[in-house]
Simulated assay, not measured.
Amino acid sequence: MRILVIEDDRKTADYIAKGFAEAGHVCDIMADGRDALYHATSEEFDVMIVDRMLPGLDGLSLLKAIRAARNTVPAIFLTSIGGVDDRVEGLEAGGDDYLVKPFAFSELLARVNALSRRPPSQEQKTVLRVADLALDLIKRRVMRGDQLIELQPREFTLLEVLMRGEGRVLTRTMLLEKVWEFHFDPKTSVVETHISRLRAKIDRPFEVPLLHTIRNIGYSLHAPH
C-alpha cells in the first residue's frame, strides 16, 4: 500500500512510517495541512492517516476539502482529541475511522489493513496506465501491450511511483523518500541502478521509450509527445 501520513510531530510520523515500512508499505509524510491537501489531490494513495491539529489547515478542514474534490481514498484520524463529539465530528467530516493517541501501532496497522480491504469505489484506480504500459495494483502484475513484465518488489514500487507521477519530473531525492523511505542521501547509486534495471524491462524490448532521464534533475515516465 501507499499511505499518506499527515502528522506534524516528526517523531510520531517517523515511528508510523517505520512500522509500515517493516510491514512492506510505502509512506509519504506531510506536516502541513495545506501542503497535504495539494499532495492528496494530485497523487493517488491507498489510505490516509490524518492528525487533527495541523499547521496551515486543520485536519477536519483538510479532509472536508479532499472529499469536496471527489477523492474517496479511505482516511483514519489519528489524534489526541478523543471526546465522543470529536469522534462524531471527524467521521462526519469524511473520516472512515478514528483512533486516539496514545496508540498501539499494531492496532493502527490492523485498522489500516481493514480499510484497505474495502471494495474500491469506481473513482479509485486499481490499474495504472501510461500509453500501452499497465500496472495492476491488485494482481501485482505489469503488462506492456500483451507482454507480461516480471519485476522485483522494489522495481514494482518504483514503477508505481513513476506512473502515479506521470508526466512530472521526480528527482533522485523524491524517489529515495517514496521508494526506499530514505530521508537522507545514502551516497549510493541505488536509484540509478534500479532505474537502469527498470528501463531494461519496460523500455528496451519495445519501440517507444516511456522512461526518460531529465539530465541533472531526475526521471519522468510519459508517452512521447
Rank of each mutant, 00 (worst) to 15 (best):
191 V>L: 07
191 V>F: 08
191 V>R: 10
191 V>Q: 08
192 E>V: 06
192 E>Y: 07
192 E>L: 08
192 E>W: 06
193 T>H: 13
193 T>I: 15
193 T>L: 14
194 H>A: 14
194 H>Q: 14
194 H>C: 11
194 H>Y: 15
195 I>W: 09
195 I>C: 09
195 I>H: 07
195 I>M: 14
195 I>T: 10
196 S>Q: 15
196 S>P: 10
196 S>G: 11
197 R>T: 05
197 R>P: 05
197 R>N: 07
197 R>Y: 06
198 L>W: 05
198 L>P: 04
198 L>E: 06
199 R>C: 03
199 R>D: 02
199 R>K: 05
199 R>W: 03
199 R>V: 01
199 R>A: 02
199 R>H: 03
200 A>R: 07
200 A>Y: 06
200 A>I: 06
200 A>T: 07
201 K>H: 03
201 K>C: 03
202 I>L: 07
202 I>D: 08
202 I>Y: 09
203 D>N: 01
203 D>H: 01
203 D>C: 01
203 D>I: 02
203 D>L: 00
203 D>Q: 00
203 D>S: 01
204 R>H: 10
204 R>M: 11
204 R>L: 12
204 R>D: 14
205 P>R: 14
205 P>V: 14
205 P>K: 14
205 P>C: 14
206 F>P: 02
206 F>M: 04
206 F>E: 02
206 F>C: 04
206 F>V: 02
206 F>L: 00
207 E>R: 09
207 E>N: 07
207 E>T: 07
207 E>Y: 04
207 E>P: 01
208 V>L: 05
208 V>R: 05
208 V>D: 06
208 V>T: 08
208 V>P: 06
208 V>K: 06
209 P>T: 01
209 P>G: 03
209 P>A: 00
209 P>N: 02
210 L>Y: 02
210 L>R: 01
210 L>A: 02
210 L>T: 00
210 L>M: 00
210 L>Q: 00
210 L>P: 01
210 L>H: 00
212 H>W: 00
212 H>T: 01
212 H>P: 03
213 T>Y: 04
213 T>Q: 06
213 T>C: 00
213 T>W: 00
214 I>Y: 03
214 I>L: 05
214 I>V: 08
214 I>F: 02
214 I>Q: 04
214 I>E: 05
214 I>T: 03
215 R>S: 15
215 R>T: 15
215 R>C: 13
215 R>I: 15
216 N>Q: 12
216 N>D: 13
216 N>E: 10
216 N>F: 10
217 I>D: 09
217 I>R: 11
217 I>S: 10
218 G>S: 12
218 G>C: 12
218 G>W: 13
218 G>R: 13
218 G>N: 12
218 G>L: 13
219 Y>D: 13
219 Y>A: 14
219 Y>K: 14
219 Y>H: 13
219 Y>N: 13
220 S>I: 08
220 S>C: 12
220 S>P: 02
220 S>K: 08
220 S>Q: 07
221 L>P: 11
221 L>C: 12
221 L>N: 11
221 L>D: 12
221 L>K: 11
221 L>Q: 11
222 H>F: 11
222 H>P: 09
222 H>T: 11
222 H>M: 10
222 H>W: 09
222 H>S: 14
222 H>I: 08
222 H>N: 11
223 A>R: 10
224 P>M: 04
224 P>S: 05
224 P>R: 04
224 P>F: 02
224 P>C: 05
